[in-house]
């Protein structure tokens, strides 16, 4: 019985001793929080890379997709829904090629854009099918269809996630934090739906356009770069270029079909 108060006293003391520790720890944490120095491009010397992606060979025949998994999707595509893994433009260029600066920006940290990139689930397709996003930039997932969709990015470097989305619900907000070229995206509910996301830690990425196959990487600081072009069927190609102060460099890629 006599020992009891003593025990209490030590407990209280140890409590007092330990209590200020987190307080102390808090101070350095807040003051030494890593302050990121973002790189700012000098407009006076900034250059650009532009170009176009050509397609050589026989234009593949687009396959008709079986949409019987969902009668609502079938209804939206009475004339049939066709595979979009290869989209050759009327002028012979190739669309949906992801082009980005693979090397040459090391040591520079770019502030993530606050402008959300939007991926829509519309007509039982992902739109756009191929797009880039800066690491840390918001991704808004929208469902414009009258059916339940599911978006499942099969990320390997970033955290993979899987989310179903009912019609008329608020956009899902997500981010990717690591470079990953590319992240394959599927819909677990509609097996034909595909998208590809290129997540890079800078703003120098583009997708070759419909209908002319062009792309542009503007406001690029002068330097030596490796530019990579990626296509979901035809793989990757890269080219080394030098961007001179205020230089406009032309880079073209050609993917060959069968």
């Amino acid at each position: 019985m006599k020992r009891l108060p003593f025990v209490f006293v030590t407990l209280v003391f140890s409590g007092c001793n330990s209590a200020p520790k987190p307080e102390k720890a808090k101070v350095p944490v807040s003051t030494t929080a890593p302050k990121v120095e973002y790189f700012h491009v000098d407009a006076a010397t900034a250059g650009a890379v532009h170009g176009r992606v050509s397609f050589a060979g026989k234009k593949p025949v687009r396959k008709k997709i079986d949409v019987s998994e969902d009668p609502m999707c079938a209804k939206m595509h009475a004339a049939g829904l066709y595979d979009e893994s290869v989209v050759v433009n009327p002028n012979g260029t190739l669309a949906n090629v992801f082009v980005y600066v693979k090397q040459g920006l090391e040591g520079k940290t770019f502030e993530p854009s606050k402008e959300p990139v939007v991926i829509d689930q519309k007509g039982c397709r992902f739109a756009p099918r191929v797009f880039g996003i800066q690491t840390g930039q918001p991704l808004n997932v929208v469902n414009s269809d009258p059916v339940t969709h599911n978006i499942h990015p099969l990320a390997q470097v970033n955290r993979a996630w899987n989310q179903s989305q009912d019609p008329q619900t608020e956009p899902l907000k997500r981010r990717f934090l690591q470079r990953e070229v590319m992240i394959r995206v599927k819909c677990n509910i509609h097996s034909w739906m595909r998208a590809w996301i290129g997540a890079v830690e800078h703003p120098y990425f583009a997708v070759s356009a419909q209908p002319d196959g062009s792309f542009e990487l503007p406001n690029l600081p002068p330097g030596d770069y490796t530019i990579e072009a990626w296509h979901e069927v035809y793989g990757v190609q890269e080219q080394k270029i030098t961007v001179k102060p205020s230089g406009k460099e032309d880079v073209s890629f050609t993917f060959k079909g069968e």
Binding site: D70, V147, T148, N150, H152, A160, W161, N162, Q163, S164, D166, T169, C187, N188, I189
Partner: peptide, 19 residues
């Protein structure tokens, strides 16, 4: 009460829930 119809419930399960 987020799923309006049984079809949407079934689709939700087909999708594998939400991670």
């Amino acid at each position: 009460g987020s799923a309006k119809t049984l079809r949407r419930v079934v689709d939700f399960y087909v999708g594998g829930g939400n991670s």
